[in-house]
Design a binder for these strands. Sequence first.
RNA 1: GCCCAGGUGGCGGAAUUGGUAGACGCGUUGGUCUCAAACACCAAUGUCUUCACGGACGUGCCGGUUCGACUCCGGCCCUGGGUACCA
Length: 906
Amino acid sequence: MTEYNFQEIEKKWQQYWNERQVFKTLEDPDKPKYYVLDMFPYPSGAGLHVGHPLGYIATDIVARYKRACGYNVLHPMGFDSFGLPAEQYAIKTGQHPAETTETNINRFKKQLEVLGFSYDWQREVRTSDPDYYRWTQWIFLKLFNSYFDHQQQKALDISKLPIPSGLTEEEKQEFINEQRLAYQAEISVNWCPDLGTVLANEEVVGGVSERGGYPVVRKPLRQWMLRITAYADRLLDGLEELDWPESIKTSQKNWIGRSYGAEIQFPIKDFGEGITVYTTRPDTIYGVTYMVLAPEHLLVPLITTDQQKATVDQYLEQTSKKSDLERSDLDKTKTGVFTGAFAINPINQQHIPIWISDYVLISYGTGAVMAVPGGDQRDFEFAKKFDLPIILVVAENGSQEELQEVYAGHGTMINSAEYNGLHSKEFTKVIIDRLEQEGVGKAAVNYKLRDWIFTRQRYWGEPIPLIHTEKDGVVAVPEDQLPVVLPEVEDYKPTQDGQSPLAKAEEWVNTISPVDGSPAKRETNTMPQWAGSCWYYLRFMDPENKQNLADYEKLKQWSPVDLYVGGAEHAVLHLLYARFWHKVLHDLEIVPTDEPFQKLVNQGMIQGRSNFAYRIQDTNTFVSFNLRKEYKTTPIHVDIDLCRNDVLDIEAFRKWQPDLTDAEFVLENGKYICGSEVEKMSKSKLNVVSPDQIVTRYGADTLRMYEMFLGPLEQGKPWSTHGIDGVFKFLRKFWNLFHNDEGNLIVTDEKPTAEELKITHQTIKKIGEDIERLSLNTCVSTLMICTNTLTNLNCSKKTILRDLVIVIAPFAPHLAEELWQLLGEEPSVSLASFPQYNEQYLKEDSYEYPVSVNGKMRARMKFGVDMPKQDIEQAVLESEVIQKWIGGKTPKKVIVVPGKIVNVVV
RNA sequence: GCCCAGGUGGCGGAAUUGGUAGACGCGUUGGUCUCAAACACCAAUGUCUUCACGGACGUGCCGGUUCGACUCCGGCCCUGGGUACCA
């Protein structure tokens, strides 16, 4: 072999790893464990682009490094293979989602294999595999068969639920069903009549469907819900101990949205019942000038006076037509109507009007608020619009202020009867005590978090393993009958009345009750895509298990995931849902830990860089970027493969699309320069770079190192291949440490010099430290510096190179394997131990001090590392350069920081 | 609006605990090799100033703490991401 032939080398070693099963994970209780996991991908039809592997490369480096450090490493990969795109493709083409999914997975796997990842593919899981979703269904049944015990703050088996006495059998069943962690509810969903389906919130844009632009309405539908709200406190408090980015913790905190306040009852004049409101500011109770109910509030029809009825009904009609989006986003100006009824402020017996308005949400708190326009922006806007009185009750700095604007902060109480002068925070406590004593209120906690709507009217998802019976209500499919396998259907579209496509599989739907064998019907809804990803990290620990979702001992051995790497877009949903399931499973003693992912890192998104050509309006002529201002132009996306460094390949462009064959060009300096913009990498923007192209040209090792070299892992960055040559050159330079110009191995057994040992051991030390803190870009720099130094020293000594091959192996594993073999080492470098650095080689006898005068660096002076401070000070002050800068003055102070710096202050 | 992250040469970025700002790579310029080009290699490369030695300035802006600030504190500006009438 004469030169660094990456193509041959990479193929050879991938085959070697595969055949010898080098990365098969074995249970080895003698070694410390390390579980490093990527968020597994949805296998889309588009295949991998260069952004996908960023996190995978990072975890692979960590996995390989940890293995070399003596850890037993679990580093698996799988596919989140249920999902909407495969189903929509099926609707369009009739091809079974299972088939397209299989094709896509195979493509993904091939692309991943080419990059040389050290996954144990024997542990691969696919969420759409019946052997896998059997356990997803099993977990669902655990949720169905559990309730949340508020005393113990944990889930317990439903059989332990204390049932109030004196209930009929029917009432008893109802009571139990209402306590389950998986329960049914009639809730309002996004219903699109034209598409005949329910849409997720993300699929509704501006009140119409994202696809097709059909109108979407709210429609109440029976749904299965998961009681995630029961876990709100534990999900919130559990964040404290996790080694997660602060931003993700904050997102989850905000999503859960715990707030402390009070519930207060306001009696209604001439009406039996009162209104209960939730407020975080009970201290502002003297500032309440009106009440507002959500339009959907149950009291609205009861308290509306005859006089106001027509107005109210009209308003209700109007708001019910609005989508959520219109209610919140578009229409910021407040609307509302008076009900004609009055409430009584329990603290001062004031009569205050009750209004309804859609700025109050039925789904939060009690669906009713006490309006304090002096202390709340929304109430203020409403009061201004409808000319309601405004009373200021909290003053920022003790003095009475003008009613110009809202003051929502804390301060001194004013206009609050005997409480004037008290601090508002103090008064909060006082007023809650008083309300409690008088029996008209109490301290209360509220959450933004809602229960999780767990059903989809879709085909390509896990069937919900429940059976609707005539006599016994909803019953679970017996465990030994799991999995409930998806039936074959002819048509993947939902039914006209909003049922899942499964409803059409009559033979499958009609079944018998597991209780008494009477005719019964299967639940036809399927689970959302989040379900499978809620627990896949558990299955990796024991993927073949037929008896359990995973063996408890194995879970104990591997849990928790030590390092979890994935995109920040999963900050709340996936990570919150998975934590919720994990906690339930922990309560039921199925998993040993309370939290699934100890350390979490978000890799930044790699964006694409799109190219544009500028078509002059109404012509087929394109003008070069810098001349475009002289014409009226429309920019069009140009496939980035047609450009090189923003210069358009005109011939290729003409051949690209039929209507461009006779395109004309206005050039600058003889070239057509394209415009560019950084955008999300996507097919439609023609800016997708596939790793395959890079691998063919430079090899997987170069791609791996280059992606790491781009910058910090957590940081987003646009993809650019500027600089990839530098990384490629570096690998070739590394290769050339072992070879001469003729390609012959020149490694010698000579003893290394102190200098050679120093740079090598510095490198070993820094690489170890930097991998630990996931600073992988600086690892690449360090390896470059080391290679440059050794090249300059003409060092080809085996002692040195052997260590470095192991150090570079996590980054460029194929190259390392090849060189390892050339050194005569065996078996695989992937099984070699990471070298220990020797502190002795790093020691210096002297250090060159930067010497500054008044903080400005003026000279460098070399002193022994053990030289006493006084001697350094003396030597510095006596030196000519410093004398010059001091200019005859007496130095006020001389600071000597040993091994760091000297600073003379005059 | 609120929350989070970030702002350092022509570019990507480095500086881990407050201690030589700009490591490493790209790009650019000059050179060697070559008939020539590509590749490769060598050298220079923050800005301003100076024939040169050197000097001044310099990490978004303003101010502070410190012998010393990219790093800490206060205020402001800008960019990216998340979220949105949550009482």
